[in-house]
């Protein structure tokens, strides 16, 4: 911890801020675009950028997991969901609900509050990145020693989620049985 000024920037910080702006822009596009599939794709960009941020913060294992699970499975699941609910491919004018002004106001207000609070709280705090902190071996060590019990619990939770999802889908098929089944148009 050497004495550094608030905005004395290092190379890492410049990259972090640039990628951060990209992530933010992608996220904003994701929640504002009128094309539903585009929203999913902008989500990919935002989450991918976030993985880069993790790498910059030396959390390499988390970054790869992020790429694998979020980009690999979650977004694919979302795209499948869009298809299964027969979302239109082109721009849909009613993607936003009537609650939009309120949502904007609430979001802006909370952003202002949080940013003010965070900046005020961590104005003089620095992260020491000289020594990597998220290496896979160290993380695996603590994951399977200290955190093994929550880890196992989480596996049970995943199983439960799996069973629940299957049960919901089965119930739908057994009850409805309508011809309005299958993928998009």
């Amino acid at each position: 911890m050497t004495e550094r000024e608030l905005l004395s920037t290092s190379g890492q910080e410049i990259v972090f801020v640039l990628v951060g702006l990209m992530v933010l822009g992608a996220a904003v596009l994701c929640v504002t675009t009128r094309q539903l599939v585009h929203a999913a794709l902008w989500l990919v960009v935002a989450l991918g950028g976030l993985a880069v941020e993790y790498l910059l913060l030396t959390a390499e294992f988390v970054a790869w997991v992020q790429v694998l699970i979020y980009l690999g499975s979650v977004v694919v699941l979302l795209l499948f969901g869009l298809m299964l609910t027969r979302a239109p491919i082109g721009p849909s004018p009613d993607a936003d609900s009537g609650n939009r002004p309120v949502a904007l106001a609430v979001a802006l207000a909370s952003a202002a509050c949080l940013v003010t609070l965070v900046v005020d709280a961590f104005r003089t705090t620095w992260i020491d990145l000289d020594e990597p902190h998220g290496r896979s071996d160290a993380l695996g060590d603590s994951l399977f020693r200290t955190w093994v019990l929550p880890f196992e619990a989480l596996s049970v939770l995943l199983l439960a989620a799996l069973v629940g999802a299957i049960a919901l889908s089965r119930a739908r098929r057994a009850r409805a049985g309508t011809p309005a089944d299958g993928g998009g148009r």
Partner: peptide
């Protein structure tokens, strides 16, 4: 019955409470 309205009020309320607490 609109969940988004409820949620907006909830977040706004939480915000106000948070600001007040701070």
């Amino acid at each position: 019955g609109n969940v988004q309205t409820y949620l907006s009020a909830l977040v706004a309320g939480a915000l106000v409470l948070g600001v007040a607490a701070v």
